[in-house]
Design a protein around this nucleic acid. Structure first.
Length: 285
DNA sequence: CTCTATGTTTAATT
DNA sequence: GAATTAAACATAGA
């Protein structure tokens, strides 16, 4: 579930649950999620510390501690944090837990759930490269059209692939990019550097609209379940909500992309590439 | 059984 | 070198 709106919701939840609290215990034994750190380092770095604040940039969360150490959390594809009673049993997908004593005196516990384990937990003394190399965050920094023009105008990739580049705008994933381009009425296969300034302005607006719509839906949702509040994402074959023509499906940058061929305008095509012989790589076994 | 999935990194290829 | 691509990671659900 994690794209920017989901991660922002999780940030607020963590801030409420453990912001200002003393960590009484922290455990994780999952070497996949902790890669490449040792499970003992996780507990050692967190236990006894006080949580100063919980921040977010793009899809990364940062939990700042009183000794200036910090825990970074990326949710991958299926990661999620939940607040539970301290004695609440471990779920199958639980990969880590942090138990705290809040300053209102109430004990609490947050659990990291992640069935596929694409997510990561990283303890560090300073900001990690993955965090520092993120582009501007649409909520934290706002979306500046000129910055987008500078970046998109220099890329020859399909505009949707460029939008999902975390150094262009942090937090834009497959859903947001798909929805933003539908709102902007621009074909996701358009060559990024073929777009006019006005069109990039429309993408910025479309992104802002999609972002607020999803954040709003997340805020009022009663559960953590996947929310289907999208115009075209996941709707291949269904009628376009604007013109009723069937929604098309293509693959860009390895990700399923849906759009309306009728009302999303194409601006140039991706760079011509020489045909390539079909080759098969043997799986690393 | 097959196919798909909200993300990122890595190795291979142009 | 850069840029682009498919595959890999691991699991659940339809």
């Amino acid at each position: 579930m994690p794209e920017l709106p989901d991660v922002e919701l999780v940030r607020r939840r963590l801030q409420r649950g453990i912001g200002g609290a003393i960590i009484t215990a922290a455990h994780s034994t999952d070497r996949r999620v902790l890669r490449p750190q040792s499970p003992s380092a996780f507990g050692r770095a967190l236990s006894g510390r006080t949580v100063r604040e919980v921040n977010r940039r793009g899809k990364w969360l940062r939990i700042l501690l009183d000794d200036d150490a910090r825990l970074f959390s990326h949710l991958g594809m299926t990661g999620w944090w939940v607040e539970r009673d301290r004695d609440s049993p471990k779920q199958r997908s639980e990969r880590a837990r942090i138990d705290v004593l809040r300053n209102d005196g109430r004990p609490s516990s947050v659990r990291y759930l992640d069935s596929r384990r694409f997510g990561r937990l990283i303890v560090a003394k300073e900001d990690i490269t993955e965090w520092r190399s993120l582009g501007p965050d649409p909520l934290v920094d706002g979306i500046r059209v000129q910055a987008l023009v500078d970046k998109l105008g220099r890329s020859r990739r399909a505009v949707k692939e460029a939008l999902m580049d975390q150094s262009v705008l942090a937090g834009v994933g497959n859903i947001l990019a798909t929805e933003a381009l539908f709102n902007a009425r621009i074909d996701p296969r358009s060559r990024s550097d073929a777009l006019s300034r006005a069109e990039i302005g429309k993408i910025a607006r479309g992104l802002d609209t999609a972002l607020r719509h999803e954040l709003d839906a997340r805020e009022r949702a009663a559960t953590d379940d996947f929310l289907d509040v999208f115009s075209v994402y996941g709707r291949a074959g269904e009628p376009c909500p604007r013109c009723r023509s069937p929604i098309a499906r293509v693959v860009l940058g390895g990700r399923t992309t849906t759009f309306c061929k009728k009302c999303q305008i194409r601006r140039g095509r991706p760079a011509a590439r020489t045909k390539r012989r079909k080759t098969r790589r043997r799986p690393a076994n």
